[in-house]
């Protein structure tokens, strides 16, 4: 029962993007389409799960003072693995995510979970925590990416879903649209929470 709780808290209740406002840079930068959102979400989830596993395994051997640099090295290693693997097998997505793949290193969600959860809990709970947080992140990216793609291109996941006469609101897939959609979604979250 405890494990399902570790897993499900990241999806809605402690959603890293909407509730904790972590990892904003990739959230806004790559959500021009659902495909990019899923690519980024999966890459981050992989790094999150494996860095959580390793941090929870080595937590007892690392001296207190150098723990943050050590976590960063662990995270950076997995980011490099993801970077090279995506470049080899998914070159299209790798190209459109560009700079933001290596920048997963400085995504505060990952270091945040390493420090706040994996360094205090056992490996099994850490896996579930990483998985839940990663999928919560992916979910948030898909929601934002879906709205922006629908408004800005009249498509969902590359398929035309709007009627033929729909004129895309181009601004939604440009930079300002990211901020506006994110701001309105956060406002909506607050509104539902207050009721």
């Amino acid at each position: 029962m405890k494990l399902t709780k570790e897993f499900s808290k990241g999806l809605i209740k402690e959603n890293p993007v909407f509730v904790m406002a972590l990892g904003l840079c990739p959230t806004l930068a790559v959500t021009t389409s659902v495909q990019n959102a899923i690519g980024m979400g999966m890459a981050a989830t992989f790094v999150l799960v494996f860095s959580n596993i390793f941090v929870s395994l080595v937590k007892n051997f690392i001296p207190e003072k150098i723990r943050i640099p050590s976590y960063i090295v662990i995270i950076a290693s997995f980011v490099t693995i993801v970077d090279l693997t995506m470049n080899a097998f998914l070159p299209e997505i790798h190209k459109s995510l560009g700079l933001f793949i290596p920048l997963i290193v400085v995504n505060c969600i990952i270091l945040g979970r390493a420090e706040a959860f994996a360094s205090k809990n056992n490996t099994i709970s850490s896996i579930f925590d990483g998985l839940g947080m990663g999928l919560g992140f992916t979910l948030a990216l898909i929601v934002i990416g879906g709205i922006r793609e629908l408004l800005g291109a009249g498509q969902f996941f590359g398929m035309n879903v709007m009627s033929a006469g729909y004129k895309p609101i181009l601004i939604a897939i440009l930079a300002p649209g990211a901020f506006l959609v994110m701001g309105l979604l956060m406002g909506l979250m607050n509104l539902t929470k207050r009721k």
Binding site: A175, P176, F179, G183, L184, M186, G187, N190, R194
Partner: peptide, 23 residues
């Protein structure tokens, strides 16, 4: 500012307007 837009949400909207200007 409407209560549910206070803080982060309105900051995002302001950032969006600034991005529009910088566009």
């Amino acid at each position: 500012v409407p209560a549910s837009m206070k803080g982060m949400p309105i900051a995002m909207i302001v950032a969006g307007s600034m991005a529009l200007a910088f566009l």
